[in-house]
Amino acid sequence: MLPAQFDYVAASSVDEAIAAKAEGGDETRFLAGGQSLLPMMKLRFATPSKLVDINRIASAGLNSIRRHNGQLHIGALVRHADIAASDAVSGAVASAAPWISDPLVRNLGTLCGSVAHCDPEGDWNSVLLATGAEVVVQGPSDRRRSIDIGDFVVDFFTNSLADDEMVLGVHIPVPSGPSGGSYQKLERKVGDYATVGVAAHLELAADGTISAAGVAMTSVAPINRKATEAEALLVGNAPSAELFAEAGEAAAAAADPRDDVRGSARWKRQVVAAFTGRALAAAAEQAQG
């Protein structure tokens, strides 16, 4: 099954990639791992007139995972498998990486590609929402900006990139104090989309109470959704099973799942409540560890 015809450019630098994208506008797409884009092109859900392949750009920034200035940087060409194997990652990021699709897809697919794809069934945007990440993008003439993940994800398969902008990487804050995170995912089989996914991130103050909390959900709303009421319940309180159960109920109330082949909306809400509790308990254990 071949995709529809398109022109192909293998960019050798970020500047060249951005110039090629700017010239083609919204009919042009970047090709990183291609593990969502190519299947969509084969099914004619996407019919770009040009692909700008960024895989041959030999830039350290695009290919690296590193901690710098209190942030974890993950470049645009870092594969899911690289993240799963990295010692530099922790918390919800480390927890989610082995559960992205299947091992073969993880060898090619990229975190940044998944983030830009904005599929509400994609796992990474929940992790990024829970951890308060930023997406670093570049346009022509080295015009660079950082976009809060909450502003980057606009809608179902829609991000806030301009037609001449490219994602360079993401920045995920690494708290200086005790913190922990977890991603809980229910899938029917390896490689299927999440039936329900919940990312949780907690930071603790010196007295052991929760100083910051992030909870975000996959596959239970038209976009990856932050459970802001659950987050508000957590902050200022000491971690406890009762508190996490209460937060789970708040997250379930914020979810907007649909009945589908993966289960009923009512059942998915119950899974959100249970998984939120589990993710928070795992996050707290790590933070207290």
Binding site: L31, Q35, L38
Partner: peptide, 19 residues
């Protein structure tokens, strides 16, 4: 359709020949 590209297993139906 798995093949090894530079030793790494990938799905050859989800990679372009030009890549």
């Amino acid at each position: 359709c798995t093949v090894l590209v530079d030793g790494t297993p990938v799905k050859s139906c989800t990679m372009l020949a030009v890549q």
